[in-house]
Amino acid sequence: MDQVANYLFQIGFSFSIFILISLGLAVIFGMMRVINLAQGEFLMLGAYFCTICNQAGIALWLSIIFAALAVGLFGMIVERLLIQWLYGRVIDTLLATWGLSLFLVGGVTTIFGPQTESVAAPLGNVPVGDFGIPVYGLVLIAVAFVLLAAVYAFWRYTPYGLIVRGTMQNPKISAALGINRSLVYMLTFGFGSALTGLAGAVLTPIVGTYPTLGIAYIAKAFITVISGGHLPLLGTISAASLFGTIDGVVATISTSVAGEMTVLFVAIVLLRLLPLGITGRLNRGV
């Protein structure tokens, strides 16, 4: 029984990590088609903002929200300075954001040094039979689900979501309908960045804070969104459930690296079988 609970927790946990790290990317890459290789660094910035706020004596929950807002703002600045010149030039976007990624890693290392800062994970463990399940892990799972539901509801049921989706689908028609396309792009990019910053901040107590934090997650995030296919949210959810389950199971049986290797292998085979991604044949949805 407690063995089963432990398994379930592992699977839920790795599912939530997949969701958290790829939700921002699902907005920026999945919806906007901007290949943002600096996505991992946005995650890292979120973690740093959260750590700094927390070390300054602000409560962790508040720090996490501050971090999300700060990274969102940073994302909008990046969009204005860099990305807005590159819409439609996919490869150039990819290269430029790679430059940004190197720049950010270098900059953060210069300012804060290469050592790992840490924030203590609050809330302790809850005993389940012979195992102790960290309560913060459960909070993480809850956060992932709430975030997912909130983003889905926002895209699907609010007028803003409709405007954003319409603009991404056909920018010229939306512009002709009087929508300020440039502003929508900027805000959407900021929204995606904020989601990423939030993810980084929430992950900090578990993984620590260091300049190359992003590199560890960027690969996972991209394979999740790519395997998901052209419906950013549904695709991300389905890919994250698949990969999260595989990763959770393999990581519990063997090592976490084996889990990641298996996920990559499955993702590559999946590309051959479903080149358009899991949601490739669906026409409706977000």
Binding site: V90, L94, F222, I223, V257, E260, M261, L264, A267, I268
Partner: peptide, 28 residues
């Protein structure tokens, strides 16, 4: 290459997949 090219994934997916491939190999 077989999985990517015969799967006919788009140019940009190919770029990212190759990148992911090398990162995972590094981790391994």
């Amino acid at each position: 290459g077989y999985f990517m090219i015969y799967g006919r994934i788009s140019e940009i997916y190919l770029s990212v997949t190759t990148l992911v491939f090398t990162l995972i190999l590094e981790k391994g």
